[in-house]
Write a protein that binds this DNA or RNA. Structure first.
Lengths: 341, 341
DNA sequence: CCACGTCGCTAAACTGATTTAGCAGAGCAT
DNA sequence: ATGCTCTGCTAAATCAGTTTAGCGACGTGG
């Protein structure tokens, strides 16, 4: 790549000045006493030669690389990763930085490997991302420089960027209350593991808190709570079937994520029930599938792009140390209506 | 990051040898006449000091960075990107390389920007990826070094990695023939634009060729072909509805992708028809949704991970110049059975 | 007239590796 | 004793920038 690029020495020669002068002018150094004419000549020469500095040479001296490492546990298995990466990419570009991406796959050897690669390249900072919101242990080796946790927290007091799951839970509950749902709101997706172990999930507990808090404030409590071993469509399907077997059918269901909601849709379809006439459904994540369902699924969107962007901002512009919660906007579609009876 | 790392000079000093000697030993240079003892001492010193070479310094001299640029048009909007990236990441790691990721979003300014960032960093090669299989124009600036096209071809004779869509089409048709389907096989997802304009899609035409060729060889032709303005669920839904309005109902449907198939499922569900008893469905992509549908959707999987991996291999190990077609394995689920009548 | 400060600029050191050119000593033949 | 080769190793140049230290000319105040 990059053949015969002009060097700083070329620019200096053409401008009839020293490398020192050229370097200072191009870096916009304050307090130098170079004449306006010298500035002009350097800029002109650089322009004419299409000069671009060699990053390797520069970072050898300055130890800055204009490169951010994006380390994540898993990129492929969740399609949300794309959003995080894209947001980070955008924000990085705006700040003239570039993203070096590595993946640990939760494997200690890979992680060590990734971290060595990063340290060898002297990146300016690390975004350590988890693909499911959770607490994790940051490898000490990267604590030498700036680190931001993305979609994760850690025992160390590091800046972190998280989705506002509790707010989303509150909003879901409010949305149903506003439509007039009261004592026949059911929940699908309770999961002890997720709720209890922050190293597995932070979202489950937060969403639940938001839902319960808001309902309680309105003097309402959940009709039933369906437990699911995983948050997958088949479990949503099963949970909805048992829900339909109960004597009082709910008027609305809150699903802990869209995949569960998809399963619930399948069960309702088979039972010949219509959404939202017979039953409202609301959910979390805004998985692409939410828009494809019939009717479209109302859901609180995980703001992945915003989060990726925020992580870069906190890393480069310096966060205030506090955790940064990014709101989850509600995507209103057709799955929520007033109860029939 | 990276505080107080040992340098080559430190290693040399500790080993009681020159930097030259240390460098040669650590790089495993052949033909050097350094003694076995000198080798030992250098290795020991490097080990004790935890020496890792400074990539910036090395690449300043050698113009190699052990870094590959992954340039794509869009990463976030398609959840397939993750697979490509993960495969590339894995293969890169195996070869001690790292991935620099940029995104152009199809925007010329962003593209120029991305390419400058890449050239400035002297990457060893570029993977230029499209998120939908298509033909594209490669910016001349990156042609100075090795380039591999991923999920794309170009007018220039560059090595490229593509999914074997034609083979997948053939396999889909064969699968239905093997189950005994004959003259009542329908197709959903014809699209003139996609089929005609290689800058939009290469997949549409290739899949169609594979399907038609195989059916023709068995003396069978398609019952009907449903056209769709896009390959989205709503269009699959509409196409299936019009299909069901026809006098002879098909025994099997081939959908050009899984999202169309999802729409078809919705229409069949509403019509009270059962898959695969009343109708078999087969498709392409292996979108995550394919596994979630009831019954699971049989589909030819886009081998994204393999493709990403292959791209890195071709880039670093040198391809044979020919296009590299990666087979699309059929994921057999429950949506295909023998025709009822 | 001289010391001093300011202006405008530059030489050279420095970053940490790789690589070229070549040196000192041993062994051997003439 | 001399010339030659071979062995085992090193000094110094090089990559392309940034940064430190400082130089010569000029203006000014005492």
């Amino acid at each position: 790549m990059g053949r015969e690029r002009a060097t700083l020495a070329d620019v200096a020669r053409r401008a009839g000045l020293s490398k020192t002068a050229a370097s200072m002018v191009l870096n916009g150094r304050e307090g130098t006493r170079l004449s306006a004419e010298a500035h002009q000549r350097v800029f002109a020469a650089a322009e004419e030669l299409g000069y671009r500095p060699n990053v390797a040479a520069r970072s050898l001296r300055t130890r800055k690389t204009a490169t951010i490492a994006f380390v994540s546990d898993i990129v492929a298995t969740t399609r949300f990763a794309g959003g995080l990466i894209r947001g980070a990419l955008d924000a990085a570009r705006e700040r003239d930085h570039v993203l070096l991406i590595t993946e640990t796959q939760g494997d200690a050897t890979f992680e060590r490997y990734a971290i060595e690669a990063i340290l060898d390249r002297q990146v300016d900072g690390v975004i350590y991302a988890a693909m499911a919101t959770r607490r994790l242990a940051v490898p000490p080796a990267i604590l030498g420089g700036p680190v931001v946790l993305l979609n994760a927290t850690s025992p160390e007091p590091l800046p972190c960027v998280l989705p506002d799951d509790e707010g989303a839970g509150a909003m879901a509950a409010e949305t149903l209350l506003a439509q007039g749902h009261r004592d026949r709101i059911a929940l699908i997706g309770r999961n002890r593991q997720k709720e209890r172990d922050p190293e597995i999930s932070l979202a489950a507990d937060a969403r639940l808190r938001g839902i319960r808090g808001t309902l309680a404030a309105a003097g309402v409590s959940l009709l039933t709570e369906g437990f699911c071993p995983e948050w997958l469509p088949e479990h949503g399907y099963a949970a909805m079937r048992t829900l339909l077997d109960r004597p009082t059918r709910p008027t609305a269901v809150i699903c802990m994520n869209d995949r569960l909601a998809f399963g619930a849709y399948q069960a309702l379809g088979e039972a010949g029930l219509t959404i939202p006439d017979d039953l409202s459904v609301i959910s979390f994540d805004d998985d692409p599938i939410a828009a494809w369902l019939r009717p479209g699924l109302s859901t609180a969107a995980l703001p992945h792009e915003q989060m990726g962007r925020r992580a870069v901002e906190v890393l480069l512009d310096g966060g205030d140390g506090a955790a940064s919660f990014v709101p989850m906007p509600l995507r209103r579609r057709r799955s929520v209506a007033a109860p029939a009876d």
